[in-house]
Design a protein around this nucleic acid. Structure first.
Lengths: 247, 247
DNA sequence: ACCCCACCGTGCGGTAGCGCACATAGCGGA
DNA sequence: TCCGCTATGTGCGCTACCGCACGGTGGGGT
């Protein structure tokens, strides 16, 4: 890697001990990824594992008729390409970049080598994968039981958390593709949120004016996913602490 | 374990080499599990990993208002309790047994010991987990885009595969809870299937008369999940073969 | 043999979201 | 400055599903 990682770093990389960093960092490459880039195509073997720093990536499933639905969102708390260490080598999901930015990437071979040491990275990646599983499961339930208005709030909150900004560059059309609903449905829902002063938007830019308002209008799904993700990250920290104090 | 495992064995256990079996089998315990047993409660730490042999287990998420939806089905192709090796120690899903039968169970400690060898079981469990992820993701999309009629077919097919029988002991009410829809919706859909001669049912027993008919009425989701599961199991077999021929 | 309860059938009004069609309006480029 | 494309607003009929209510029925327990 050319330079020391910048502030908007990746949480998994950050959780590594100095020793593990020493092994891994030299093989990381900070790669620019732009809006719309497809990091993973269904059935294709990935060549790198990506550690996003300041980008947000959607994992979505596409149906035969072209309809789609997002199953999870990844930001700098995770990685794109879990099939590389889960052993399947490819997935059925497409990974597409929303807000452009940067990601560290690690070649499949280097990843395998480090993962097979069964050390820190192994634990961090598997625990993150469990967090991803939780997100997918909750998405399934949310798709079943909650209305578009609530789901839009959930999606905005997940995005806010991953982008660390209050403005999203995102059209209604794109959000509709992510949620798997009609564009008009998103326009309606967004219009209601705007009328209530919770968000403001114009031509592809959405500004969140009141995060508490969003949270109040959201279904429990956002909270459930966040709570479990926090719990799992807490376990990461506890383990790191334990290792440092020489347990 | 008291006796040699019976024919309806678990595929993951079956895929182990003689050597790995030698280490693991002595610690397995064939446990009867009955209809309705909850193997895993949200937030609770599991004490055993379960390898179903002739039972079918639903993984479901329950919402605050009591509404629920199944996110995946597990049979003798997999295990219940992936959080034990994924590192989270608990999950947000509930695992509930449908058709009673038997499962081998392995204590959390023994599992950890074997998993940490980073050998065969490690690979098998992670690859199965990827298959589970695929199922959850597809469920999310199916919940979004497909109607109850199609989802009922999907569910019946998934159940058939896991039970290895053409008769299911299952009420409309229970299926409705799994799919996250109204009981009446299931009654309607099942009535239509019966009228078309694809299934027959009475008071809690459903008999599948035409599997091809079910497959034709089903959305692509069943096929997609099965295809990916088969691919992943094929990789298991290839690895086992490779190991035997001393690669 | 009976009874009762769990299971299934059916109807009704209400609503969320769909598919389609078309009107309006920013914003970037020539 | 104007043009054209893309993004958003809105309306309409339709369907699937919901929540509720109640009627019928089969099968197991006593």
């Amino acid at each position: 890697m050319a330079s020391e990682p910048r502030p908007p770093h990746n949480h998994i990389l950050r959780s590594l001990s100095a020793e593990a960093r020493g092994r891994i960092y030299p093989h990381l490459r900070l790669t620019p990824v732009s809006h719309g880039t497809v990091l993973c195509e269904p059935g294709h073997r990935m060549r790198h594992l990506y550690f996003p720093t300041d980008t947000m990536v959607s994992l979505l499933h596409v149906l035969e008729n072209g309809a789609s639905a997002e199953v999870a969102v990844v930001g700098n708390e995770g990685v794109v390409g879990v099939s590389l260490f889960m052993g399947g080598e490819s997935t059925t999901t497409r990974a597409i970049v929303h807000n452009g930015g940067h990601a560290f990437r690690l070649s499949a071979a280097r990843l395998k080598r480090e993962f097979d040491r069964h050390g820190e990275l192994h634990g961090l990646l598997l625990r993150y994968t469990q967090s991803l599983i939780t997100q997918m499961a909750q998405t399934a339930v949310c798709n079943r039981h909650h209305c578009v208005d609530q789901q839009l709030c959930r999606w905005l909150l997940l995005s806010l958390d991953r982008l660390g900004a209050t403005e999203l560059v995102m059209t209604h059309e794109l959000i509709a593709n992510m949620l798997g609903v009609r564009r008009e449905g998103v326009t309606d829902a967004a219009g209601r949120l705007q009328k209530r002063g919770i968000i403001r938007y114009r031509r592809g830019r959405i500004t969140v004016l009141s995060r508490p308002g969003l949270e109040a209008s959201c279904c429990e799904c956002y909270r459930a996913v966040k709570k479990e993700a926090d719990r799992l990250r807490g376990m990461d920290r506890a383990r790191a602490q334990h290792a440092r104090t020489g347990g």
